[in-house]
Each structure stands twice: as C-alpha cells, then as structure tokens.
Amino acid sequence: MQNQSITQRLANPTRFMQLTDWLMPLTAAIAVVVIAAGLYLALFVAPPDYQQGETVKIMFIHVPSAWLGMMGYLMIAISSFGLLVFRHPLADVSAKAAAPIGAAFTLLALITGSLWGKPMWGTYWVWDARLTSVLILFFLYLGLMALRSALDDESLAAKQAAVLGLVGVVILPIIKFSVDWWNTLHQPASVVKLDGPAIHSSILVPLLVNAVGFSILFLALHMKAMRNEVLRRRVKALRLAEVERAAKRERTAAAPAE
C-alpha cells in the first residue's frame, strides 16, 4: 500500500471522493484568500506603467487567465495520455472536467486581451499569431466538448476525445513561441524568459500572486468538476442497474406463462 504512488492511490473514485470532500473546500478557501490579496496589490498597490498607464491593471488578470487557459489544455493532454497509455480510471474524468474550465479561462484571456488592446493598440482584435493561436485553443476546447456530447457511448467518446486532446496539444508551443516566430502586435514574453523577468517587482509581485491564486482556484474548480463527473457516472450506473433489474423482473414474471 505504501509503495503506491499518489496517482495509483487516487485511481479508486471512492477514495478520490473521500479525499476531495475536504481538500476541495480547503483549496477553494486558500484560492479566495490569495486572489483577494492579489487583487488588493493589483488595484491599490501596483503603480501605473510608464508607457501603458493604468491599463497595466488589466495585465494582472489577463496574463493569469491566459496561463490557465493553456494549463487547462496541458491537463487535458496529460489526462488523455493517462487514459490511452495507463488506462487510469480517473483520467477521462479529469480530461472531461478540465475542458469547460480551461475554455472559460481562455475566453477570459481573449475578452480581457481585447479590452486591453483597444486603448493600447487602437483595436479590439488583430489576426496576429498570438491572438489567432489562442482563439484556436478556445475552438479546440469547444471541439472537445462538442465531440463528447455528440457520442452516446461514453468509453468511445473518452478515447476519441483523448486522441483529439493529444493531437491538439501542438497548439501550446505555437501559442508560447508565436511572439518569437512571427511578427506580432502582441508583446513578447516578459515573465517566463531564460534571462529572468523583464518587469519591475512592483508589478511582477501582484501578477505572480494573482497567478498563484488563479492556479489554486483552477485546481479547486477542477476537483469540483471531477467530483460532479464521478457522481454523474454513478447516477448513470444506477439507472442502468435499475433498468436491468426491471428487465429481469419482467423475464421472471413472463417465464411461467411460456
């Protein structure tokens, strides 16, 4: 038992439900505290940028949203790998649960980005490589959700969504390096750089606090969505059991008449 890895121990949905019963609310509470601190720093402490003025405040929510939009997809890709290669029982639950959350953060990255673009670039939208690749990421999320809802057979839907999820992961390096590979209106990386961040600490600290807070929130939401999915599958299994039981009763009632 002690030699089991965490993923092996969590392979049992019942054990996952027991663990997340207290871990999920705790994670959510920590997320609320960290995000509150991050928003306080962003709105009341961080100075205006020397070029962008107060609109830099949009960055404190835009950048974490964009990171988590990508992290959501990475989670789907890892879960898809876990399903296809290791047949982990919760891998598909994890992949399915991450899609709407990742889609929501990607949508927020697009909305806050365009609201930042209008005052800074003079336009809500340009078809440059960074913006377009993030839009494709959003469509990939929608595609994954549509694929699942189009297939009634859950195990077939799981496999097909896992293949699409793995193929689609190619969008992540394209998004990350789009600002280096092509001429974009979007600014190049300024936080995750080999030679260290190019942002002053007065702006970097609130950004990182918000990023940590949003990430913890993502984990809490993902746990909640996974719990809902486990319950949904239990409901489905019970309904099947009920139908089977009714069919069996009918067969035994009809048997003496034959």
Partner: peptide, 9 residues
Amino acid sequence: YIWGSYGAV
C-alpha cells in the same frame, strides 16, 4: 476598459 475586464472575469 479596466473595469470591463475585471467585471468580465
């Protein structure tokens, strides 16, 4: 634009 972004989030 700033309040719009925070409102959307």
